[in-house]
Every structure is written in structure tokens, then in C-alpha cells.
């Protein structure tokens, strides 16, 4: 349900970047999500298709990179992949782990077109 508001927030940030760099067209937006981001990929895509025509160039591509849920065990320091949301790291007595990726909605990069100005401005 909240994919719409997250994508709105994403596009606001993309727009700011496009403006800062004087983009005439935003070609591609690349994002990262994971199992604990709390969003559905298809709904993110749909929200993007609905909202992205407001971006410069109006034909922007969304690339979604899906990463696994990764964590570090605070006891042994080992990096692990959390499967099926089972957060107990059985190799250590302590079940204390810190999530390192797969729980965020990250804007990775934005590909834009810019018009090189030659010092001559059109009327």
C-alpha cells in the first residue's frame, strides 16, 4: 500500500538531482530493495510507471536490483544470509545479529542526459 508514497519520495529526490545537474532527460533510475524493505516489486514498478512521466524526458526506465537479506553476527563477526526471516544464527550462542543489507529502499544511481551549453542561449 505504501509503495506509492515511497515512489513519490524517490521521484522527488530524482527530480532534485536532475535539476542540480541541468538534465534534459532522466533515462534511468536504479534502485535497490530486499526481502525486508517492506515493498512489493510489482507495486513499486506500477507506481513508478504512473508517476514518472513527470520527470524530464518523460520516458524513464526503472531498474530494480534485488539483494538478499544479509547480516553480521555480533558475536563471531561472520557475514550471513538470512533465509526465510529466521534471524537466529545457530552457529553462535548469541542470536544477536545486525542487518547490513536487504532492509532498505536505496536510490543507487540516476542516468541523465544533459545539453552541453555553448554559451549561446536561445531566445
Amino acid at each position: 500500500m505504501h509503495e506509492f508514497s515511497l515512489v513519490k519520495s524517490l521521484l522527488r529526490q530524482v527530480n532534485e538531482i536532475a535539476e542540480q545537474h541541468g538534465a534534459t532527460c532522466v533515462e534511468e533510475v536504479k534502485i535497490e530493495i530486499g526481502p525486508l524493505t517492506g515493498v512489493e516489486k510489482i507495486l513499486v514498478q506500477e507506481a513508478f510507471e504512473l508517476l514518472s512521466p513527470d520527470l524530464p524526458g518523460s520516458d524513464c526506465r526503472l531498474t530494480i536490483i534485488e539483494v538478499p537479506l544479509q547480516a553480521i553476527c555480533n558475536s563471531c563477526g561472520k557475514s550471513i544470509v538470512v533465509q526465510n526471516f529466521q534471524f537466529q544464527w545457530t552457529a553462535c550462542v548469541s542470536p544477536n545479529i545486525r542487518i547490513t543489507s536487504g532492509d532498505a529502499f536505496r536510490l543507487l544511481d540516476v542516468t541523465i542526459d544533459t545539453e552541453l551549453t555553448t554559451g549561446v542561449t536561445e531566445p
Binding site: 524517490l10 529526490q13 532498505a104 536505496r106 536510490l107 544511481d109 541523465i112 542526459d113 544533459t114 552541453l116
Partner: peptide, 17 residues
């Protein structure tokens, strides 16, 4: 036209956080 890729790598909720 120049194509540029701008690396952001930021949580989109960073500002709200």
C-alpha cells in the same frame, strides 16, 4: 547531448529518518 550516471547510493528515507 551528454549522458551522465550520477551515483547516489542513499536510502530514500534518509531525510525522514
Amino acid at each position: 547531448m551528454t549522458k551522465t550516471t550520477i551515483r547516489v547510493n542513499r536510502d530514500i528515507q534518509a531525510e525522514k529518518r
